[in-house]
Write a protein that binds this DNA or RNA. Structure first.
Lengths: 193, 193
DNA sequence: AGTACAAACGGAGACTATCTCCTTATGGGC
DNA sequence: GCCCATAAGGAGATAGTCTCCGTTTGTACT
């Protein structure tokens, strides 16, 4: 056993990993240009492979998306660690929600599949969402303990609200101040009470 | 000139209006069952007409949607009149936002094209949105005058927030309390300040 | 009633996208 | 160098949007 693979397991063919990487690089660029609804066959063509190859690696758009998001998930997790150092729990929650919002807008149209994944736990994105909801809950509870966040709010709702704001932001690009305005709205609401 | 049509204008063929009505009835049911992304050709087939006929009446999904929404727009406008009688301007704003939210969820998936229309004034839905943003602004200004709403909020942002909440609600059906929770969140925010 | 004709209909089919299946190619182990 | 499992490639089934054009039909006029 010169390899680290399990016994009776042939080492995976080298072209497989090579293709996978190449697909991801191509898809990254393609989604950045056309949004995540761009044609998958077009990505295959641009990557110089057949559609069958793309679909073997990533059986649907969602799994491709999940793979692309991996790097950003890691990034978000490391941000989470940094934010945990923040002594002001309310500021920490605000920073976390901001980071989450940036994550959800990594690609144009991303909130849509995230929302879809939210309600089906069979999706590769669902687990990711679940993890981030848990984190949201942690920051929220800390802030609630310190009196900085309303006690009746749930992490789940905050997560959904961030997703919703990220979604609507995609169309509101015309107005520069919308992102801030919406983020403020979510923080303080419209009422004065 | 025995007819009310303009001079030199032939009266429109009777089957035209008949088909139009029939298409609308069929589409109403179809969208209610399948959401607004259901196949247009399928609607034509169910209505017993050719796709060409459907597309002549409604050149795209959006215009069909706009026609279907007409009745609901009227309903919303009449609700607006009722809400204007409300002496408590803050309660009025809350009621208006609620009505708006119901309007935006008349069909499954409706928030999507509404958001799209929001940023392109060429759309038949865009004008409708614009009108409702104006109304939102009216109720908002009244509430702000009376100190019930934060002065830095804009009607446009409130409208977008309602749209966003309506959108996310589509997926959050699993959790009964989400609609209320999100509506509260929009009203008071997550922070205690 | 019959005729003329603009208006409207119907549906074949062009186009685009997703995804599958099966043949061909190739890399790994011996 | 040979075997063959593994992966690649791409044709094509399926489905949806939308258009074009030959055919039909309702209306007006005689």
């Amino acid at each position: 056993m010169a390899e680290t693979t399990a016994a009776n397991e042939r080492r995976p063919r080298s072209d497989k990993q090579r293709n996978r990487t190449h697909i991801l690089q191509t898809a990254e660029r393609y989604f950045a240009e056309h949004g995540i609804t761009g044609s998958l066959d077009a990505i295959a063509k641009r990557a110089g492979i057949g559609p069958g190859t793309l679909y073997r690696h990533f059986p649907n758009r969602e799994s491709l998306l999940a793979a692309l998001l991996q790097a950003r998930n890691d990034e978000l997790v490391s941000q989470r660690e940094a934010i945990r150092q923040e002594p002001d729990t309310t500021a920490a929650l605000a920073r976390w929600l901001d980071a989450l919002s940036q994550w959800a807008t990594a690609f144009d149209g991303l909130p849509e599949p995230l929302r879809a994944a939210f309600s089906e736990d069979t999706s590769p994105l669902a687990l990711t969402c679940q993890g981030f909801i848990t984190t949201t809950d942690e920051f929220l509870h800390a802030a609630q303990r310190d009196g900085g966040a309303r006690p009746d709010v749930r992490g789940r709702d905050l997560f959904l609200a961030v997703l919703a704001m990220s979604w609507v932001r995609g169309a509101a690009v015309a107005d520069e101040s919308s992102p801030t305005a919406l983020s403020n709205l979510m923080r303080t609401g419209w009422a004065t009470t």
